[in-house]
């Protein structure tokens, strides 16, 4: 349709001749697959922002403790970790940091895979790899915090 004809299409619009209804893009219809009828992406978007704000404190605090205070990285050792994980406060700090950072990072990578992997198969398998690595890392890290044994030897 040329520009002139679209101008004439709006001529005479009034109460008796209303403008044609334009469907909003991506409106949900009977043909929309069930899997896209949830608000998952909205919750993901909100989670990225809320977890990000909490992670500022947790991760920057962690880096300050590990790399700056008390001699920096030179003091890190098994004995140092034993001293820190003797306190439920630092166990909880590390546990929350582990879960939030992993889920925040994994959700971010999911977005990036969706952006760049164009073939359906590639996208599917990259995400399976991501989810497997994420579940493995979160479970391992959680297990390590809860089963830590200062007298292992």
């Amino acid at each position: 349709m040329s520009a002139t004809s679209s101008v004439s299409a709006t001529e005479g619009i009034g109460p008796d001749n209303p403008a044609p209804l334009v469907e909003p893009p991506r409106a949900r219809s009977a043909r929309t697959p069930k899997s896209t009828r949830t608000n998952f992406e909205l919750y993901g978007w909100v989670f990225m922002r809320l977890s990000g704000i909490v992670l500022v404190v947790l991760v920057l605090g962690h880096l300050l403790i590990q790399l700056v205070l008390d001699g920096g990285v030179s003091k890190v050792s098994f004995a140092f970790v034993a001293g820190r994980w003797a306190s439920p406060f630092w166990m909880a700090w590390d546990l929350i940091m582990l879960w939030l950072a992993m889920l925040h990072g994994a959700n971010g990578l999911r977005t990036i895979i969706n952006d760049y992997a164009q073939r359906d198969g590639t996208r599917f398998w990259l995400k399976m790899l991501l989810y497997t690595a994420t579940v493995f890392t979160v479970l391992l890290g959680t297990l390590v915090i809860f089963t830590f044994d200062p007298n292992i030897r």
Partner: peptide
């Protein structure tokens, strides 16, 4: 972070 959780797991 992935590598870091693995290296920390060596405390076990």
């Amino acid at each position: 972070l992935f590598v870091h959780v693995l290296d920390t797991a060596l405390v076990r």
